Amino acid sequence: MATPFTPDQIAERVERLLVRHAELQRTNALLTDQVAALTHERDSLKSRLSAARARVDALLERLPAVAPAVTKESE
């Protein structure tokens, strides 16, 4: 049969669990902040990409239509 824990042993284990819990809460808060920052950065990059695509599309529309090239074989 297992030896029962003394109140001091239980108190020590509870203290360690409380410390670990606090560490995990801090880690979770930091990770939550990182997720928020990365989400903001992603949204900003998506917006910039969309704007760049729109500029490229506008430039492509300004290009004159090019007739197909005539090759010697088709002459």
Rank of each mutant, 00 (worst) to 15 (best):
Q34V: 01
E41W: 12
A54E: 15
E12I: 00
T39R: 04
A22N: 13
A69P: 09
A52R: 03
R20E: 14
H21F: 12
S74D: 14
H40Q: 14
S44K: 04
I10E: 01
E41R: 13
L63N: 11
A22H: 14
N28E: 13
S44R: 10
A2D: 08
P4W: 00
E41T: 11
D43R: 06
A2I: 00
H21S: 12
S44C: 05
R55C: 07
T6Y: 03
P4I: 00
K72F: 08
V56F: 09
P7C: 00
T32P: 04
E41Y: 12
A37L: 08
D8N: 13
R55L: 12
A11C: 05
V66W: 08
S74C: 12
K72S: 13
R20S: 13
P7K: 00
V66R: 15
T6K: 06
L17C: 02
P68L: 06
A11E: 12
V70P: 08
V35E: 11
E12P: 03
N28C: 07
T32L: 10
T32V: 07
A29T: 06
R62P: 05
A29E: 12
D33L: 10
E73W: 04
D8S: 14
I10T: 01
N28Y: 09
A67I: 00
V19S: 11
L59K: 11
Q9F: 01
R26W: 01
R48K: 13
H21I: 02
K72M: 07
D8G: 09
L18C: 11
D8M: 06
L30D: 14
A29K: 05
D43W: 04
T32A: 14
D57M: 07
L18V: 02
P64Q: 00
L17F: 06
E12Y: 13
T3W: 06
R53W: 08
P68E: 11
L60H: 13
A29D: 13
V35N: 08
Q25I: 03
V35S: 06
L45K: 01
R55T: 06
L30W: 04
P7M: 01
R48G: 05
A58I: 00
A58G: 12
E73N: 08
A67P: 10
R42D: 05
A36E: 09
R62G: 14
A36M: 04
L45S: 01
R13P: 01
S74A: 14
V19E: 15
A22E: 14
P68G: 10
M1N: 10
K72D: 15
D43K: 04
K72L: 11
A51S: 10
H21M: 09
T6S: 15
E75C: 08
R13N: 09
T39C: 03
Q9H: 01
A65P: 07
T3L: 09
P7H: 01
D57I: 02
Q34G: 04
